[in-house]
């Protein structure tokens, strides 16, 4: 019963958080000078009053602010994110279209960086002070300091222009609609390679350093000494006594980073012409496409909340001492 009440309270909190987020978002995007109509007029080379009036009426921008906000919140409650007049499609549809590529990219980058970080961090931590530790730490530091767009362009220069191994940009080949299923998957994978590495690199560096540090710390703890004293092999000590403890801060941190990962995707998606949410966001910002922008913010906040819950669960899996509250 207590557990049920806990869950209900938590859910109510989430819904409230989302509504507050939606209201703040709405107020924020509407407070900047200019609106979608002025952007459209500013890009069309010639315009007149009638054109602006019609656009504003069509977008519903001629109504008072509170009326617009009310209409919007009512729609959000019914899971309708509105209609993008600029793109002439429902926002739900636009976001769903782009969600796939973005999830593919960010999740690939996420797991790549997590696995890579844990592996390299462990290697470096175990060889603490040796040259391989130094090499790994140095590379990690370099990656951490490299701007994302620069890394992306360099990878393109090497793997696409020089070696011609991988496509420079895009999500799939333009001929993909005639591909078989396997061929299609392979094609997407080839396109995914460079952007995923670019996006994951910086986080891989962070996790490597984090993992290394926490492994060194765990290695000095009493229970590890005890294990060693009772004659366990190094492999068994690592697997049974060190990894779980050392991985905990990495997972916690990675959970927090998911939001930032989606943010970083804007740059990577732009460099690699990846048709994801990040680019949709960027386009929506410059075009003042309010419904799309608000829709994305909302989906992002829901994603972050969901990931936080998942991280909680994962932590419990790794460390059973963290009880379900």
């Amino acid at each position: 019963m207590r557990l049920l009440r806990g869950i209900v309270t938590k859910l109510a909190g989430i819904v409230l958080a989302i509504l507050v987020i939606a209201t703040i978002n709405f107020t924020l995007v509407h407070s900047a000078p200019g609106d979608p109509a002025s952007v459209m007029a500013g890009q069309s080379g010639a315009t007149d009053e009638k054109f602006l009036e019609e656009l504003r009426a069509e977008y519903g921008l001629d109504k008072p602010f509170m009326v617009q906000l009310g209409t919007y919140l009512k729609k959000v409650v019914t899971l309708d994110l509105g209609y993008s007049y600029r793109q002439r499609r429902p926002v739900n549809e636009l976001i769903l279209d782009r969600l796939g590529p973005t999830l593919l990219l960010t999740l690939s980058a996420f797991f790549l960086s997590l696995i890579g970080g844990v592996v390299f961090g462990t290697l470096a931590g175990l060889r603490h002070g040796k040259w391989s530790d130094l090499a790994i730490s140095l590379v990690a530091l370099l990656l951490y300091a490299t701007p994302v767009f620069w890394l992306g362009l360099m990878l393109v220069l090497i793997f696409s222009i020089q070696l011609e191994w991988l496509p420079a940009f895009g999500y799939v080949d333009m001929r993909a609609s005639s591909f078989g299923r396997l061929e299609y998957a392979w094609d997407v994978l080839r396109h995914l390679f460079l952007p995923a590495i670019t996006l994951g690199a910086i986080y891989m560096a962070v996790y490597t350093r984090l993992m290394r540090a926490s492994l060194i710390e765990v290695a000095a703890e009493d229970h590890v000494k005890t294990a060693r004293a009772k004659g366990l092999g190094e492999g068994a000590i690592l697997r049974g006594h060190m990894l779980r403890n050392a991985a905990l801060p990495v997972v916690t941190f990675a959970g927090l980073q998911v939001g930032a990962l989606v943010g970083g995707a804007v740059v990577v998606e732009t460099v690699f012409s990846w048709p994801g949410l990040g680019r949709l966001t960027f386009d929506a910002v410059t075009a003042r496409d309010y419904p799309v922008l608000l829709g994305i913010f909302l989906v992002m906040s829901v994603l972050v909340i969901v990931v936080n819950i998942l991280t909680d669960l994962l932590q419990r899996l790794i460390d059973p001492r963290i009880a379900v509250r």
Partner: peptide
């Protein structure tokens, strides 16, 4: 500014100087 702000500011005459290009 951004594209929305630019069109809004210029068309409402709220600037000292700017740059423009017309067909």
């Amino acid at each position: 500014t951004d594209p929305g702000g630019f069109a809004e500011t210029v068309s409402n005459w709220d600037y000292d100087t700017t740059c423009n290009m017309l067909y």
